[in-house]
Write a protein that binds this DNA or RNA. Structure first.
Length: 851
RNA sequence: GCCGGGGUGGCGAAAUUGGCAGACGCUCAGGACUUAAAAUCCUGUGGCCCGAAAGGGCCGUGCGGGUUCAACUCCCGCCCCCGGCACCA
């Protein structure tokens, strides 16, 4: 009898797989059998964490499962290697971002290979490598050249720390202050490059319908809301005393136009300054507006924040009533949505109502519920419901729904606006004032202006020499060799763009590059891309529901329009996996503790004080509730870890880490190992069928059927594994002939191969089955063994289970009714009462209702 | 605040989508093996109540209502937790 030794088995098999060249995908698979299984590529932070392991365990289970089904599988991996942490490491520890990143990749690659995941390592993509980022620049130029100007430059707002003289990411701003020096952050306007994703808004929205089959409905809903299409009207309000100026608003409630009694602007609105001059706005008012502009973004859009307004003193004309109305600047209006100017109707919008009450602005009712008269002086709240128009000139008496359409048309006829569609979705600002990113291939020339870098000069390479400091902003600005260049157009001295691209650009097309990872002529070859795309199954965290997944969909459509791919959508099916969580440990003196800092007696390893156990939360370094995958693999082997991850929760749900749960999975594999041992022992193969053989046989067929439907239908690995556990329980407690045990184990190893590939491979080899377990076709259940002849059904009287009874599976209702009514308990309960109703659900229950 | 998701035994979960709630695993308790421990194996394990036992009764899927012969599942109203909110990835 041998001992289950996962370390030995796993390293041996991984070595065998490495020698064989891992799992190379064919360049051109048979279309009907191709399966592209993609997991979100990791940011090389230095060490893999359990969230990664979960992502890859799920992906690998599917990839291997599909191979066993006969698919040709592409299962690639790569590195999302540009980004802020590398630059922070450079600032904090003096390590060059490139070195830091490549060292991390090397380490994480070793860690990943110890997980035994069936990647095609020959297609590895690293997006900080020039042969990858070159094509990001190529895309930028294509977007810039596009007739629709899909890449353009405009003003945007950024968080600026005046003390560090650096632009900060949102995550570097803590409660309105700089994370390094705690100075109060200012909002600054500056030029930045944007991608016109809004040009595709309609298609991105419409495309969601095609994804219904394969995407979780909540992700579709989130994207739909993120795009936020709304139909309404734009309306032009002339400014009093300034013929040339007019304010354009967007509203979804054009029907309330006659009730518009004032207007509010975003502080950043281009006309704010001019209107303050025109209206002789007070100095204190102007200071207040400046203050609003400095407030951080998060606070600006917080609905619960106090709404503050400043009267510019200027007036504009309501084009419907002809009234002159005041123009305010208000802190809750943002430039990003609509036009940055809002027409206010206090009688029919609660937010406007409250604002008007606060500043004493006039009210005018224009919509009333049928048969009701509203009086401004008696209103306690806005009336936001539907109704009939009043005091609205030619529209009086119309329902407000009708009026929306008519009034938009009326405005259009008079040249004062018209119907329009707006999106909440904003264009994608990609400029980052950072070194460790993809340089934007643009040159600024005093003579020629903005000049794109010619294609043959790509990639614009990052300079190796740079000075990294927490102060003074982007290191590229100070890299003279990089900045100073010749204008590609006139040859005179010029300056390079020093902004680099958002790393979401890299992750917006990496899935396509995997299909042709070394192409030096083009980002991808169309034939190769079309052979694999769209991705059949994409697996990643729900946190990417809107941004990454929307940007990638946008880029895919751009690639299609450039003729690089034929499909409309990049990801046919999406699985959003849950988080990995664990309880926290804390000591009064030392705060959060790592699990290894807590003694067996629940005391702090540093001071011996009692340790309190906190809530179960997402694993994170800051909470120290993390488990190191390497340690777990060392202790139990990767098969046990993979099994636990797949068993402890369904993939979309959160997974609570539990080492005793891990031990339970380890026990299961040891028991599987024992069965392998037993099945390998020679026995009397010629004997008669033992009674137990039939029991095991039926259970085996049920297991095969359940395993396959759980995984292919709904990715329910947890219940598929539970089915295998049940089979093992039966197998252990049954005295079956060796031949039966052997055939049961053959099927079980074939099933388990996609989940715990190493033990399955070893068991398969030991039992001498042909080929390798991972290549074994999935067993087919013997359907005839699944049909039960007799079933136990529940018996209800007046809606409650009172008894159970065994009946023939195909018994008709009257036969079952006779048997049920004859049951003593039932007979007693219906004695002397009238039977109102009988319901028979075949093979499930029989329900009797008595008066 | 807005958008999206979740809440079932001591714990992770299951329930073929309106039909026998708690499969499977963990924990815990008792027992076997052992000089002992680990490992392993066996039995029990939602709560309350009646019974010596066999067995039986009532309650129970976050809270409060509703629909139905029947609700974890559908409808209405609340509470709590989690993800995202556009420069973290």
């Amino acid at each position: 009898m041998s001992e289950y030794d996962p370390q030995r088995i796993e390293t041996e098999w991984q070595e065998a797989w490495r020698r064989r060249g891992f799992w190379p995908a064919p360049a051109r698979p048979a279309p009907a059998r191709k399966y592209y299984c993609l997991v979100m590529y990791p940011y090389p932070s230095g060490r893999i964490h359990m969230g990664h392991v979960r992502n890859y365990a799920i992906g690998d289970a599917l990839a291997r499962y599909r191979r066993q089904e006969g698919c040709e599988v592409l299962h690639p991996i790569g590195w999302d290697a540009f980004g802020l942490p590398a630059e922070n490491a450079a600032i904090d520890r003096g390590i060059h971002p490139a070195k830091w990143t490549y060292d991390n990749i090397a380490h994480m690659k070793r860690q990943l290979q110890r997980l035994g995941i069936s990647y095609d390592w020959s297609r590895e993509v690293t997006c900080c490598a020039p042969d990858y980022y070159r094509w990001g620049q190529w895309f930028f130029l294509k977007l810039y050249e596009n007739a629709r100007a899909l890449a353009y430059r405009s003003e945007g707002l950024v968080n600026f720390c005046p003390s560090c003289e650096t632009i900060l990411a949102n995550e570097q701003v803590e409660e309105g202050r700089c994370w390094r020096c705690e100075s109060v952050i200012e909002l600054r306007r500056q030029n930045e490059w944007k991608l016109r994703i809004t040009a595709y808004a309609e298609e991105l929205l419409g495309g969601l319908d095609d994804l219904k089959k394969g995407w979780p409905s909540q992700v579709l809903e989130m994207q739909r809301n993120w795009i936020g299409r709304s139909t309404g009207a734009h309306i032009v309000f002339p400014v009093v005393g300034e013929e040339a100026a007019a304010l354009t608003v967007f509203t979804t409630r054009v029907d309330t136009l006659f009730g518009c009694t004032y207007m509010v602007l975003a502080p950043e609105h281009p006309l704010t300054g001019k209107l303050c001059d025109l209206g002789r706005c007070s100095a204190s008012g102007r200071r207040e507006i400046d203050e609003m502009m400095r407030t951080s973004k998060a606070r600006r859009t917080d609905e619960s924040a106090e709404k503050v307004g400043v009267d510019t003193g200027a007036r504009c004309v309501n084009p419907a009533t002809g009234d002159q109305i005041p123009i305010y600047v208000a802190n809750y209006v943002v430039m990003d949505y609509g036009t940055g100017a809002v027409m206010c109707v206090p009688t029919h919008d609660q937010r406007d109502f409250e604002f008007a009450k606060k500043y004493g602005l006039p009210l005018r009712v224009v919509i009333e519920p049928p048969g009701v008269t509203l009086k401004e002086s008696e209103m306690r709240a806005a009336y936001e419901g539907d109704g009939v128009l009043a005091r609205s000139g030619p529209f009086d008496g119309l329902s407000n729904r009708e009026a929306m359409e008519k009034m938009a048309g009326w405005l259009k006829d008079r040249g004062q606006g018209g119907p329009t569609v707006t999106y909440r979705l904003r264009d994608w600002g990609i400029s980052r004032q950072r070194y460790w990113g993809n340089p934007i291939p643009i040159v600024y020339c005093d003579g020629c202006g903005i000049v794109p870098v010619p294609y043959p000069d790509l990639p614009v390479r990052l300079p190796e020499q740079a000075v990294f400091s927490a102060h003074g902003g982007n290191p590229l600005n100070k890299a003279a060799d990089f900045v100073n260049t010749a204008c590609p157009s006139c040859g005179k001295p010029a300056r390079r763009e020093t902004d680099t691209m958002d790393t979401f650009v890299d992750s917006s097309w990496y899935f396509a590059r995997y299909t042709d990872p070394t192409n030096a002529e083009s980002p991808v070859d169309r034939d190769k891309a079309d052979a694999w795309l769209p991705v059949d199954q994409y697996i990643g965290g729900i946190e990417h529901a809107c941004m990454h997944l929307l940007y990638a969909r946008f880029f895919h459509k751009v690639m299609r329009d450039l003729g690089l791919v034929s499909s409309d959508e990049p990801f046919a099916r999406l699985l959003t996996q849950g988080m990995v969580r664990k309880e926290t440990h804390a000591c009064a003196q030392h705060g959060y503790l790592y699990p290894e800092e807590v003694t067996a007696a629940r005391a702090c390893g540093k001071c011996g004080a009692e340790v309190s156990i906190g809530r179960v939360e997402k694993m994170s370094k800051s909470k120290k509730n993390v488990v190191d995958p390497d340690e777990m693999v060392k202790k139990y082997g990767i098969d046990t870890i993979r099994l636990f991850i797949l068993f402890a929760a369904p993939p979309e749900g959160d997974l609570d880490w539990s080492e005793s749960g891990v031990q339970g999975c380890y026990r299961f594999l040891k028991r599987v190992w024992r069965q392998i041992d037993q099945a390998g022992e020679p026995g009397d193969a010629s004997g008669e069928d033992a009674p137990a053989d039939r029991v095991v046989y039926v259970k085996l067929q049920q297991t095969i059927a359940k395993f396959r439907s759980d995984i292919s239908g709904r990715f329910q690995f947890n219940t598929a594994i539970a089915a295998c556990m049940e089979l093992l329980n039966v197998l252990e407690s049954s005295d079956v002939r060796p031949a039966m045990r052997r055939s049961a184990m053959k099927a079980m190893l074939a099933l388990l191969s996609s989940l715990v590939p190493h033990i399955a491979a070893e068991g398969w080899r030991r039992l001498g089955f042909p080929g390798e377990a991972e290549a074994a076709p999935l067993p087919e259940p013997d359907r005839s063994a699944l049909v039960a002849e007799r079933v136990t059904i529940g018996v209800q009287v007046n809606g409650k289970i009172r008894d159970r009874i065994e009946v023939a599976a195909d018994a008709d209702e009257s036969t079952v009714a006779r048997a049920v009514l004859a049951l003593p308990k039932v007979a007693e309960m219906i004695n002397g009462k009238r039977i109102e109703k009988q319901i028979y659900v075949p093979k499930r229950l029989f329900s009797v209702v008595v008066s």
